[in-house]
């Protein structure tokens, strides 16, 4: 891909800022952590664009994003603040609200909560696939794993997620 047009970092911020924020929010479940991650990623992009060699830009960008996320997780592990809920047995969303709007909010809260209980490697693949909308090939580049592994992680992640949700979708 010799004639790939490399975007400027301003383009990246405009075009991908919201997507990166959503990726970060779904992975962390926390707006502050998501904002920190977006700042970190865009700074890394700004510094890294000069050395980017044309190839899969999406794969490159999401690898940076994912690495920034993992660095954040490692930092948090050294200084744990609020642990994730550890009661995996309790079913989530057993009684959805009858009100449609509230129900929609509740449903997405339930999905978010279930998502946070997925092992990290499953969670990131599912989010990159279903929230960010990457292909398996792009996800493989982002998480630095073979496509077969990505396929398996998405599959197992979805199975686990569905098992945690008791309401009909």
């Amino acid at each position: 891909m010799a004639d790939e047009l490399i975007p400027t970092w301003e383009d990246v911020a405009r075009r991908y800022g919201r997507k990166i924020y959503n990726f970060a929010y779904r992975l962390t479940g926390n707006p502050d952590d998501a904002a920190d991650l977006v700042q970190d990623v865009l700074l890394r992009v700004r510094k890294g664009l000069a050395s980017y060699t044309p190839g899969s830009f999406e794969g490159w960008l999401w690898r940076i994003t994912r690495n920034a996320f993992l660095d954040g997780v490692r930092r948090k592990k050294r200084r744990p603040t609020s642990p994730l809920p550890d009661d995996d047995r309790a079913p989530i969303g057993a009684s959805p609200s009858p009100d449609e709007v509230l129900a929609a909010v509740r449903l997405s809260d339930d999905v978010q909560e279930a998502l946070l209980k997925l092992p990290l490697e499953f969670r990131e693949c599912v989010v990159l696939c279903d929230v960010v909308g990457l292909t398996y090939e792009e996800i493989a580049t982002a998480v630095e794993a073979p496509v077969g592994t990505v396929r398996s992680r998405i599959h197992r992640g979805r199975k686990l997620l569905r098992g945690m949700l008791t309401w009909p979708v």
């Binding site: 779904r26 999905v111 279930a114």
Partner: peptide
Amino acid sequence: ARAAMRLL
């Protein structure tokens, strides 16, 4: 499960 994710 995929539909649930897309509800987000």
